[in-house]
Design a protein around this nucleic acid. Structure first.
Lengths: 127, 127
DNA sequence: TTGAAAAATGAGAATGATTATCTTAATTGT
DNA sequence: ACAATTAAGATAATCATTCTCATTTTTCAA
């Protein structure tokens, strides 16, 4: 057990893939079944710590609670405006942008975010 | 005066370019000089209404207050992790992505967001 | 012009996500 | 085993934003 029981179990849960791009609140309810005494602050703390350590990615979408993703592979997200589900998608981004930015304005890029919002198949049909 | 005095003045202020990608709070303080009795709720209400009407764009960045942009031209944003300033940049996105998404998963794209975070010239040097 | 209906305002309460604080419990190294 | 460190759990605090509601402003038909 490298870290605390709580941090370990949270990471294990995240890596299990049982939850689909969960928010901290969703992780909290799932963790309650594993460690019934866990507190919400511990969940936030550890999700953020694990993200800082590079084991998770923290995702933000406008007007919604942040999500956490165990998938570290380079990919992007599409969020459904109907049901709120997040879908992964792959696409190679033209990274000449960073270079141009650096050249033109001296801006040094730390991270790039590409995301899409719309309606998933299920939500699009009945809209 | 097409709309209410407040909405008109907010739009005029935004279009003046005096404020740089301001948050609602920043618009509020600037508006106080124009209409001293204006309330913060009115500012939020009208910024959002104007965005819904397509006269402004509402921008979201992780962990920060939303910003509003009068520039409707197709462009993207780079946010400085140091000073919080938002910089515009242009880039043509490969819109074949939407098509692929639609084909593969039946996801219908409403909007695409591409944004970059990092350090601006000023903040990069003293980091 | 009047006056009722509709729309928008301003003040402040409410909400929701997230972080901060603080006391206690667990872990570590000696 | 014990002092020092680290993390936990509970809860208060924060911050942006939205909601509510009483009041004011606007609209528009009679």
């Amino acid at each position: 057990m490298k870290y605390s029981k709580q941090k370990d179990e949270i990471l294990k849960l995240m890596r299990s893939g049982r939850l689909d791009h969960p928010s901290a609140a969703e992780v909290f309810v799932a963790m309650k079944e594993i460690l019934p005494d866990i507190g919400i602050a511990t969940v936030y703390r550890n999700l953020n710590a694990l993200s800082d350590m590079g084991f998770l990615k923290r995702l933000s979408f406008a007007g919604e609670a942040d999500r956490y993703d165990f998938n570290l592979a380079d990919h992007h997200h599409a969020i459904c405006l109907g049901c709120g589900r997040v879908f992964d998608f792959d696409m190679k981004l033209d990274n000449s942008v960073e270079k141009k930015l650096a050249e033109k304005s001296g801006f040094s890029v730390v991270s790039v975010k590409y995301s899409v919002s719309g309606y998933c198949k299920k939500c699009a049909c009945c809209k």
